[in-house]
């Protein structure tokens, strides 16, 4: 049984202009100890999926319209609030893109870690503070004991993210959801944080759902990847093989667009024509068809179902790139 299994998740937002189908039938599973990246451009529904898992989406004005989110066999969508709270921050923890707004500005780092601990664990104040120091050491915070008394605004961006990771790890979660954890950071700091997340995950054996728009981050961090487009998973599989030979034309287009360093400088970049469709009025067929170089009339008829492509690969496309001749040859 996978640790987390999302089946047919639909999350909608009611707006004045109509129903925004931000997540429109997402299937995804995560095994224990595994890192799965959920990648997509803005508006693809990747963050909404993550927020839906912890049912944080109601606060953002959304509504889970259908599907199941099975965590360790229990459907998160059917839990009462008390049981849900027992899972949040305890067995599933989350870290956010902007640590400055995710941390409480009027509490010291130490207080926040202690609070996270005592929320789910029967632990004394003194012991909790000792554990907080250990956690800060774990995330390689420089001079951890002194940092307990620091307030978020006094820390650098990298240290804030470390503090947030320490809070998330306080109760040794089975699953860590990381929503664009390095997007607000500089590249050299990003490298440090990604390195830290990889190391911690291996050491603690937790699973990670990594939400990102950056395919480079996916390549360096995740075991498996799911590519989202207009609220649906269009392709998923192991990172290595999927990036070497993408089957879905969208995945391929994305990869070509970011592999800028492989091209002669100043040359024309491969682009995906057009733009993302409005989530208010999705086309009846494949949402990518209007931008797709391989689209046929069949693509407009109905949405393609997810099909197996071997080696744990899945894709939702009527005309995938499949043969090794057509596919990207591994370098």
């Amino acid at each position: 049984m996978p640790l987390l299994e999302i089946r047919g998740l639909q999350t909608w937002f009611e707006t004045r202009a109509g129903t925004v189908k931000a997540v429109n039938g997402v299937d995804l599973s995560i095994e224990r100890g595994e890192t799965v990246a959920l990648v997509g451009e803005s508006g693809s529904g990747k963050s909404v999926t993550a927020y839906s898992v912890l049912r944080l989406i109601e606060a953002a004005g959304g509504r889970i319209a259908g599907g199941e989110v099975l965590f360790d066999g229990t459907d998160m969508l059917r839990l009462d609030l008390a049981s849900l709270r027992a899972v949040r921050g305890n067995r599933i923890a989350m870290i956010f893109q902007e640590p400055l707004s995710a941390l409480n500005p009027v509490q010291s780092i130490g207080t926040q870690i202690v609070e996270a601990l005592r929320l789910h664990r029967d632990i004394g104040l003194r012991a909790a503070r000792e554990r907080a120091v250990e956690l800060l050491e774990l995330v390689r915070m420089p001079s951890p004991r002194e940092r307990l008394e620091e307030y978020p605004h006094r820390l650098s961006g990298g240290m804030r993210q470390r503090a947030m990771i320490a809070i998330a790890l306080a109760c040794e979660p089975d699953l860590l959801i990381a929503d664009e954890p390095t997007t607000a950071l500089d590249v050299t700091t990003q490298a440090q944080i990604l390195d830290l997340l990889r190391e911690l995950q291996g050491r603690l054996g937790m699973a990670m759902l990594l939400i990102t728009h950056d395919l480079g981050v996916v390549a360096e961090t995740a075991d498996r990847v799911a590519v989202l487009y207009a609220g649906r998973v269009v392709e998923q599989g192991p990172v290595e093989t999927l990036f070497d030979a993408p089957a879905h034309p969208y995945t391929r287009g994305l990869l070509d667009a970011v592999r800028i360093e492989e091209l002669p400088p100043g040359s024309r970049l491969p682009e995906i024509p057009g733009m993302v469709p409005s989530l208010l009025a999705l086309p009846p067929g494949c949402a990518f068809a209007p931008r797709c170089p391989r689209a046929t009339p069949a693509c407009d008829a109905g949405p393609p179902a997810m099909r197996a492509g071997g080696e744990g690969r899945l894709h939702a496309c009527f005309n995938p790139w499949l043969s090794t001749v057509e596919g990207r040859v591994p370098a």
Binding site: V20, A22, K46, S47, V48, A60, D179, T183
Partner: peptide, 9 residues
């Protein structure tokens, strides 16, 4: 960008 800001500007 957070996917929460879904509606158009």
């Amino acid at each position: 960008m957070s996917g929460i800001a879904l509606t158009a500007a």
